[in-house]
Every structure is written in C-alpha cells, then in structure tokens.
C-alpha cells in the first residue's frame, strides 16, 4: 500500500511539473516579458538591463528551476494588466469561486442522490421516465443557457433574485463569505444552481446505475428474505454500498466544477477566479493565465490523489489486490 501511494505521489508530482512547464513556456515564449513590462519610451539599454536583472538571459533550465521554486514559495510575479502581484489577485478571488463550487456540489448531491435512488427503484414509472428525459436535456443544454433561463425567470420576469455580482459579503479575516447573510445567499443561489445542474444529472445517473447493480445482488435478496423493512433495505444496505464509486466520481468532478465556473461566473458576473482568468485571456495577461493554470491543476491533482488514497482505505479488496 505504501508502494502504491508513493507511485501515485510521483505521478502527481510529474503532472504538476508538466503543468508548471506549460505555464513557464507561456511566460517565456508567448510575447516578450520585457516589452510587456516597459513602455514605448524605454531605451534599448534600459530594456537590456531589465532583461539581465530578471534573469531572462540565463540558461533555460536555470530559469525553469527559478520559476518552479518561486511558485513553491508562493511568489507568482506581477500581472501585465493591473501591475499588481498575481498571488494577491488570485487570493482575493478564491473564496468566491470555492463557495460557488461547494454550493453547486451540495445542490447536486441533495437532489441527485434521492432522485437516483428513486429512479433506480421504480424503473418503469412515469416519473422515472420524465426525470431521465430531463437529465438528458440537462446534460445537453449548455451551462450558459441554463444561466440565461434562470436570469430570465427569476431575475427579469419574477424579480425575486439579483442576477449580477456577489452582493454584500462578510469578511472573515481575509476570506469573504456569502454564507452568513440572507442577502449573500440570494446572490449565490442562481449561479450555484446553474453550475450544479450538470453535476446533478451526472450524480443522478451514477447513483441510479450503481443502485440498480446492487439491487440485483445476492445479499440484497437475502436481506429481503430476512424481512428487513424496505426503507432500511434501500437506504442502509443498498445505498451504503453504492457510495464508494459515487464519492470517487464526485471528488473528481469538483475540479471540473471549479473550471466550469468560468462560464457561470461570466454569465452572472460573479467575481471569482474564472472571471479573472477570462479577463486575462482577453488581454493576453500571461502571468495570470499561467498561475490560474497551475492553481487549477494543483487542485485537480490533489483531489485525485486524496480520492485514490481514500478509495484504497475504504475498500479492503483493493488493498489485497495491490498486495498480490
């Protein structure tokens, strides 16, 4: 088991190095950093001096090493567009995106799991067919369309919810949160639903497939024969055994949620990392693009690693397989 964890750890480090290399190549080869940082009136000598000071004349490997160590120290350089340190820019945007992502994931679980169980138990009912068709539509409709529909319904026609920005937030020592006020929730709920719909359909389909698989197994039949009440049978015995693959996939999806929040944040002008990334793509603000890339990949790789290790701990069968 230690061998397996070590192997996965090395794999993760490799992926991170590759992504860092990608980000570094962005810095180095897309546009000239010096001409980005200086104005038109800067003399050639000054430009050359700056180039030397920044270490851009050093060998490639040395530069990449410096880049990687700077990232590990949390020094991400300066934005071309705003001239602010990139780590401050990203840090101020992280809470908005994380809170949006978590709320979306919660919505997808709270609705997705019961719906999955229901459709698995009543395979031929009218409600099941309707739900299944709705999920197919949910997978196929682009996120931004869902956002538009919600804005149109609840923002424009009914006027119940604000549709723009994050509203008032409470500052908890650098972490701004929408969770503590009613106003914050009213701004959060539409974007969170928009982002959660795709995850919801995915969760539902997965729970349904796993549930149907488990319900056919011998131990469920035996439990039925023992006279265990239906409700307990379904929710304790069957659902419990579907949770491992479900948790895995949901863990893996969280990285996707954070990335897909780019679209949702754009529709609702939600001031998170995705909106920042979008602005930097538009202005070719390479440092911010590179750092966003590294942050997202780190998140993704970390979640992957934790899920794999958890999986190994939860399911004893896997440990045995590794031992052989």
């Amino acid at each position: 088991m230690a061998y397996f964890i070590l192997k996965r750890l090395f794999q993760s480090i490799f992926v991170m190095l590759a992504v860092a290399f990608l980000a570094f190549s962005l810095f180095r080869f897309v546009g000239d950093p010096v001409s980005q940082m200086t104005g038109v009136e800067t003399s050639v000598q000054d430009q050359e001096q700056l180039r030397e000071e920044l270490g851009l004349n050093d060998p490639f490997v040395v530069q990449f090493y410096r880049f990687t160590t700077d990232i590990l120290k949390g020094d991400f350089g300066y934005s071309y567009r705003t001239r602010q340190p990139v780590n401050e820019m990203i840090a101020s945007r992280i809470p908005a995106t994380i809170e949006l992502g978590i709320t979306a994931l919660m919505i997808s679980l709270i609705v997705g799991i019961p719906a999955g169980v229901y459709t698995a138990l009543r395979t031929r009912g009218f409600a099941t067919q309707t739900i299944l068709l709705t999920t197919l539509v949910g997978v196929s409709i682009p996120t931004f369309v869902i956002g538009i529909v919600l804005i149109f319904l609840f923002g424009v026609t009914l006027g119940w919810m604000p549709t723009f920005g994050r509203g008032g937030t409470v500052d908890l020592g650098g972490w701004t949160t929408s969770f503590l006020t009613l106003e914050g929730w009213s701004y959060l709920i539409l974007p969170a639903i928009t982002l959660g719909v795709y995850q919801l359909t995915l969760t539902m389909r997965l729970v349904r497939a796993e549930m149907m698989e488990v319900m056919r197994s011998d131990y469920i039949r035996f439990a039925t024969a023992r006279g265990i009440p239906q409700r307990k049978l379904h929710y304790r015995h069957a659902l419990g055994n579907t949770m491992i693959p479900v948790i895995t996939i949901i863990g893996l999806q969280f990285g996707g949620v954070i990335a897909f929040s780019i679209v949702t944040e754009s529709v609702f002008q939600w001031p998170g990392m995705g909106l920042l990334f979008l602005e930097s793509v538009r202005f070719v603000d390479i440092p911010v693009m590179g750092v966003y890339l590294v942050v997202i990949a780190f998140f993704f790789v970390l979640v992957n690693l934790v899920v794999d290790i958890l999986y190994l701990m939860i399911d004893p069968r896997l440990r045995v397989k590794e031992a052989i």
């Binding site: 490799f14 590759a18 992504v19 990608l22 897309v30 780019i262 793509v281 070719v284 693009m289 993704f300």
Partner: peptide, 26 residues
C-alpha cells in the same frame, strides 16, 4: 498516457481557452 494525464488535469474548456489565449499572443 502521461501526456493524457496532464491533459486530463486540465478540463476541456480550460484547454480550449488557453490555446485561444496563446494564439492571441503568438
């Protein structure tokens, strides 16, 4: 497969946005 791993760490929409951004710079 390692290249695929790296690709999988970056969701599709991010890859597409990134290539788009790079092309603007180049």
């Amino acid at each position: 497969m390692r290249i695929a791993d790296v690709q999988l760490a970056l969701p599709a929409i991010l890859t597409a946005l990134l290539i788009d951004g790079i092309s603007r710079g180049l």
